[in-house]
Design a protein around this nucleic acid. Structure first.
Ligand code: FES
Ligand code: FES
Lengths: 145, 145
DNA sequence: AGAATAAAAGACCAAATTATCTTTATTTAT
DNA sequence: ATAAATAAAGATAATTTGGTCTTTTATTCT
């Protein structure tokens, strides 16, 4: 098992991709994005529609339309994407699937997992969407293969 | 998304349960285990069959049969259970689903995720199956609800 | 106004995961 | 030997996730 769902993986990659290609106010179409992150085009379309509906990314239809990310949205942490897609199970849920993670009725992994969970959340909360534009443009970081 | 699959959640809980109930060499049947960890009986049966085939737990058929865990197996870390069920994706895979996590072609989350991944692995490697028998017996820790 | 462009929405389809039930094989006790 | 107990194995079903294709709506350009 991976830590994120496929949907979330594609979503985050696409958002990074849109951010770094649209840094100058440009918009980018679904085909280019899908090619740029090596994901199935129609599936990604669904994901971006959802993120768009939820206000995490922006889009306009028609010629010269496409996806982009507003300057306010560029400052959002990627935890917002994860929460929008995978929910908060990773941040709040019990590692062993108990209905409710709590100090009152903790599972054996509770103490240790709680610390890790917090660390994951802090990481995602501390990274924002346009933070890697430079490295992505220069090719130091990758979103495909 | 949770960090482990349902199969793995049930599997770990069952293994803890078998460990703490069979500390004195006793065996325990699938019905009792399923009730004890609040899981679907037939589904759990499949999971335990698999863990048994893989040598992580032990079982014998017939009257007074049931599942148990050998003293060598009791010392195994729960990372063994996770690897047997969910594979090593969580320990080795890329957070963003790149085919290969590597320093050569890292995704934007690589550095931070790598540290977290290692921490998860260390946690699972550092906890062994019979480590919580006392707390489970005394009710400080829970495997259900 | 009409054609072209691009995302949104909707209808499917496929595969994997989760779950249930039935039958078989093995062991024990009588 | 037979019956009872118990896990193993097999078959099937439901749900969720992942993926594809078609139609509709909004926008722009001519
Ligand atoms: S109760 Fe399991 S992680 Fe908190
Ligand atoms: S390349 Fe993505 S985590 Fe290593």
């Amino acid at each position: 098992m991976a830590i994120f769902s496929k949907t979330c993986e594609y979503g985050i990659r696409a958002v990074f991709f849109i951010a770094h290609t649209s840094a100058n106010g440009r918009r980018i179409g679904i085909k280019e994005i899908a090619a740029g992150i090596d994901s199935p085009e129609f599936f990604l379309a669904k994901i971006l529609q959802d993120l768009s509906r939820k206000g995490i990314i922006n889009s306009i239809k028609g010629p010269n339309g496409g996806f982009y990310i507003s300057s306010e949205n560029l400052k959002r942490p990627i935890s917002d994407i994860v929460e929008a897609i995978d929910g908060n199970g990773l941040f709040r849920g019990c590692a062993l699937g108990l209905k409710q993670c709590s100090e009152v009725n903790p599972c054996p992994l509770h103490d240790e997992f709680k610390a890790i969970r917090t660390r994951i959340y802090d990481m995602l909360r501390g990274i924002n969407i346009d933070q890697f534009n430079q490295e992505l443009l220069s090719g130091i970081l990758s979103l495909k293969k």
